[in-house]
Design a protein around this nucleic acid. Structure first.
Length: 735
RNA sequence: GCUGGCGUAGCUCAAUGGCAGAGCAACGGUUUUGUAAACCGUAGGUUGUGGGUUCAACUCCCUCCGCCAGCUCCA
């Protein structure tokens, strides 16, 4: 009896027997299709193609079925999850007794975490891959089965999979029945779905191994995470691997060193970027560009110092909230450090009394600082001592290397009474901030400890919020477009309602998130909400930008803030002659200059467009006799605003050209006696890597000026990587 | 910060317990050159740091510093 009504994507309805799976349906349509089916989408949910349709749908009378083949990106994710199982199975064969943790898919592959004392190294990859190949060749089917909780616990205990047992007990409390997948001798607690059989995995490779911890908890058991990738064809995989190589070639740390753009020198300090002249030129050009745009949009330039009183950041909330990732406070006088030290001695984790010499030093310090030392007696109780020292601590100067610019700008706003007529006030500064990032996070220019934000703070009335926010979005769009970054999406980062890490009232948060959502919707930008990603003081819109090879970077950000104005008691006089509270918008279109330029280096692979290139033109003299003309030319081009150098070495022209090509200089001006006599230049184009003709000086100037004015991007190897869609991460930490 | 890997000349890399080397760059000279590398020569090192094992350490062990990958974090 036909009990299933199936509706296919083209709208056709068919009836099938009650026990049919998606695979059975496919077989009935055609053997070739059945062979190509990897998974199925039933009523929008991806499921195993081999599971009975009745089991995966609520209503057997109405089953919307889409058969997913190897052409479908969603199927790719399913297959990669199966590949994770195959790898785990191979590793179990090679390392009997290995403990299994989680094995989800990632954007371009998968990983599996193992509990194994023996270290897996790169040298082991070939034999793991070989074993995986055997499993794929065996082509055994994946089977799904259920166990009740109690049985599941017994079952994983029987398998000696402690982590799985623990996960069922603690992580999956709300699940009554638990699904498992069996593939030959390998059984794993898993949510699925999976491919029908291992043979669907056409290409795979183990990429790396790295340490991690059970459920990401540093205090928990250390695990080994093995990363791999898998594809439906060898060709796709080769292309992907080639793109990984391409990304390595673009590494800004390598290119930055080769081209002399920047330096991170251990003698200066970890995570502290030295901008060498060429890198500084790129940055200065970008800053100049954005400053012009800010004038046009009514921003006012300000400058603020690199340090500020700790109290300033206590008021803003940054100091207590980010204490661990800030450089320690700077004391106005060295003696202040002793007071701080003694407070820690008395109240710290290893609290104890003060030694006699410490008390002596303390009283000496108090004298230097001008405190009333009679208030402190060695006979006081510990708590009384702490109370006195806290008072001293507060009355001395303590500074913080500024971790944010906003409190400084807030003070500038506060410096004079504001009327509603003055608003919005837009204060802009390329402000350098310092954050003591964990050593493991530091990464070239992309993650540093001293960074310069292209920062600004807008103070406006609640009525102006949406218009101002819309304008900042427009600004970010404009600057991204100007450097040729036209592929981006916006992430609306909102609070996690379950968390208590945020400051401010429920009402303000709702208002802020509502405004952001409204303006983003009206802007026509595609955006998605991301819970728990907000800053502690307010929600934000982050720009996620795709580079030339399809990698996504979080760059610009716009943040809405009702809380700092509250904390700093900001006011303006309204038309009703009453005091009102302004709203703040924080925004940084580039994010930080370090990160942005680092990204640009990788985006352009070091070959900057003419307007940004640190050295735009190089004059290459053919013989010594042309040096004088070459130098005259250089002066002319410099006077016209170009960055030019002259290569007058006594090498052959071929060598000069080769060097200039390798240094990625956009144009070479080759001049010999012919050019000197005619007062012309032979232009060689780096992109084309050839002579593009001899023109007069005026013509050359006009050509280059036009290219600079248009910010033309002449060459951007948009790789096919950009078209390789990332697959959704199919499994999270649930199973 | 955690786990693992790594650290040799300015750069890229050799030397698996037995005399620290090459290419490029630099410097000196010759060459005066027409669109991706002219030729000859010179110099360059306490092998990241401090300690240990050994007749002998770039090599093996420990400490610290730094780098890389991943984890965790990211105002």
């Amino acid at each position: 009896m036909n009990a299933l009504k199936v509706i296919l994507p083209d709208g056709t309805e068919k009836e099938y027997p009650a026990h049919y799976s998606a695979l059975d349906v496919a077989k009935e349509i055609g053997a070739r299709l059945a062979n190509a089916v990897v998974a199925a989408e039933v009523n929008g949910v991806i499921v195993d193609a081999f599971r009975p349709l009745a089991e995966v749908s609520d209503n057997p009378e109405r089953i919307n079925l889409k058969l997913l083949t190897d052409k479908d990106p969603l199927a790719l994710g399913v297959m990669r999850h199966s590949a994770a199982h195959v790898m785990a199975r191979a590793i179990m064969r090679l390392y009997p007794g290995v403990g299994l943790a989680f094995g989800p898919t990632t954007g371009h592959g998968f990983y599996y975490d193992f509990d194994l004392d023996q270290k897996i190294s790169e040298d082991d990859f070939p034999r793991i891959e070989q074993e995986m190949a055997n499993i794929v060749k065996e082509d055994e089917p994946f089977e799904r089965f259920y166990l009740e909780r109690d049985e599941a616990v017994k079952f994983t205990e029987g398998l000696k999979q402690e982590l799985k047992t623990e996960h069922i007990r603690t992580g999956l409390k709300e699940h009554g029945k638990l699904s498992f997948y069996r593939q030959g001798e390998f059984v794993d607690l898993c949510r699925g779905p999976h491919v029908p059989a291992a043979g669907k995995i056409k290409a795979f490779k183990i990429l790396s191994v790295a340490g991690t911890h059970w459920k990401g908890d540093q205090t928990a058991k250390p695990l080994q995470r093995v990363y791999g990738t898998a594809w439906f064809s060898q060709k796709d995989q080769d292309q992907y691997l080639e793109q990984i190589e391409e990304a390595k070639r673009r590494d800004h740390r390598v290119i930055g060193k080769k081209l002399g753009l920047f330096q991170i020198n251990p003698d200066v300090g970890q995570g502290l970027c030295l901008w060498l002249p060429k890198g500084a030129t790129i940055r200065a050009t970008l800053e100049e560009f954005i400053k012009q745009e800010l004038v046009a949009r009514g921003y006012l330039p300000v400058y603020s110092p690199h340090i500020g009183r700790v109290e300033l950041y206590e008021t803003s909330g940054h100091f207590p909230y980010y204490r661990d990732s800030q450089f320690a406070p700077i004391f106005g006088h060295d003696a202040g450090r002793i007071i701080d030290y003694c407070i820690n001695r008395l109240s710290g984790d290893e609290a104890g009394g003060l030694e006699a010499h410490e008390e002596e030093a303390l009283l000496e310090a108090a004298k230097i600082m001008g405190f009333d030392a009679t208030g402190y007696k060695p006979t006081l109780s510990k708590d009384e001592k702490i109370a006195v020292l806290r008072k001293w601590e507060k009355s001395q100067e303590r500074y913080l290397l500024k971790p944010m610019n906003c409190p400084h700008h807030v003070q500038m706003y506060k410096a004079e009474p504001r009327s509603y007529r003055d608003l919005p006030v837009r204060l802009a500064e390329f402000g350098t901030v310092y954050r003591h990032e964990q050593t493991g996070e530091l990464n070239g220019m992309l993650r540093v400890r001293g960074l310069t934000q292209d920062d600004a703070h807008l103070f406006c009335t609640p009525e102006q919020v949406e218009a101002e926010f819309a304008d900042t979005l427009g600004l970010v769009k404009f600057v991204l477009q100007s450097v040729g970054l036209d592929d981006y999406r916006v992430q609306l980062s909102i609070r996690d309602p379950k968390s208590d890490k945020y400051v401010g009232s429920e009402e303000n948060w709702n208002k802020a998130e509502g405004s952001l959502r409204k303006v983003l919707t009206e802007s026509g930008l595609s955006f998605e909400s991301c819970e728990g990603e907000a800053a502690f003081y307010g929600p934000k819109a982050d720009f996620m930008v795709k580079d030339a090879i399809g990698r996504e970077w979080q760059l610009g950000t716009v943040q809405l803030d009702y809380n700092l104005p509250e904390r700093f008691q900001l006011e303006y006089t309204g038309s009703d002659n009453k005091q009102h509270r302004p709203v703040m918008i924080h925004r940084a279109p580039f994010g930080s200059m370090e990160r942005f330029v680092g990204m640009l280096i990788e985006h352009f692979a070091g070959a900057f467009p003419l307007w940004l290139a640190p050295e735009q033109l190089r004059i290459c003299t053919v013989t010594d006799k042309a040096i004088e003309y070459g130098q005259e030319l250089a002066q002319i081009f410099r006077r016209n605003g170009f960055r030019v150098s002259v290569d007058n070495r006594s090498t052959k022209i071929n060598a000069k050209i080769r060097d200039a090509q390798l240094e990625l200089i956009p144009y070479m001006l080759v001049v010999g006696m012919k050019e000197a006599e005619d007062r012309t230049v032979a232009i060689r184009d780096r992109v084309e890597s050839k002579d593009i003709g001899t023109v007069s000086i005026e013509e050359a100037l006009a050509k280059f000026k036009e290219e600079v004015a248009n910010k033309t991007i002449r060459q951007l190897t948009k790789s096919k990587f950009a078209q390789v869609a990332e697959t959704a991460v199919t499994a999270d930490n649930e199973y």
